[in-house]
């Protein structure tokens, strides 16, 4: 399957000028048994994630965990400071005056979870990534707002330069291009 020519490729990229066409193409590619499919769009297309079956499940759990860590860290910091490190009697109030600790615990929960949501998105998307082979695709352009790309990667078990190209042509794209690796 993997010819020497295909080794220098990232994938074959079909270009569409309509979001509906891209969704249909993705459905057909799925049906044809391709697995290593990437779609590139200028804006989010909700239907596409259903077709290509990508859901982000980990991030919410990481954020819940961060909320918990933030609450605990906030309490531990204040308890340690007021009760262990520097106990001082302020107007006879208990050293562990937890009601007044709540606000900073809350703020730290917010801070930790927001940093996790943003950082998790960045890390799991692999950003920053200065180079990616898809940019080698001729006419790869997010800025028209009307170009949609479907890429079948060479790493797909079914990938065959000729046959895959013919398959992509049947999807009625505007062009089929090679993305050099």
């Amino acid at each position: 399957m993997a010819t020497s020519q295909a080794n220098q490729l990232y994938g074959l990229v079909a270009e569409f000028h309509d979001a509906e066409e891209l969704i249909h193409a993705a459905e057909k590619a799925k049906a044809a048994g391709y697995e290593e499919i990437r779609a590139y769009t200028p804006y989010r297309i909700e239907a596409l994630s259903k077709v290509l079956g990508h859901r982000e499940n980990l991030l919410p759990w990481l954020v819940y965990f961060a909320i918990f860590v933030g609450i605990v860290a906030g309490f531990v910091m204040q308890y340690w400071s007021d009760v262990i490190n520097y106990p001082i009697n302020v107007a006879g109030r208990p050293l562990n005056s937890w009601p007044s600790f709540i606000i900073i615990m809350f703020e730290l929960a917010i801070l930790f979870s927001a940093v996790t949501a943003f950082g998790g998105m960045m890390v799991r998307n692999g950003f920053p990534v200065p180079y990616h082979p898809i940019f080698n695709t001729p006419d790869f352009d997010l800025s028209s707002g009307t170009r949609f790309y479907l890429c079948i990667k060479v790493t797909d078990r079914q990938f065959h330069l000729q046959r895959t190209r013919e398959f992509l042509q049947t999807l009625n794209p505007k062009a089929v291009n090679e993305a050099k690796a």
Binding site: R38, A39, Y40, T41, P42, Y43, R44, I45, L48, S49, L52, H54, R55, E56, L59, G120, M121, M122, R124, N125, F127, P128, V129, P130, Y131, H132, I134, F135, L142
Partner: peptide
């Protein structure tokens, strides 16, 4: 930061 409009990136 290298945004390329990948569908899984959009989901995340």
């Amino acid at each position: 930061l290298g945004w390329r409009g990948d569908h899984s990136h959009w989901e995340r």
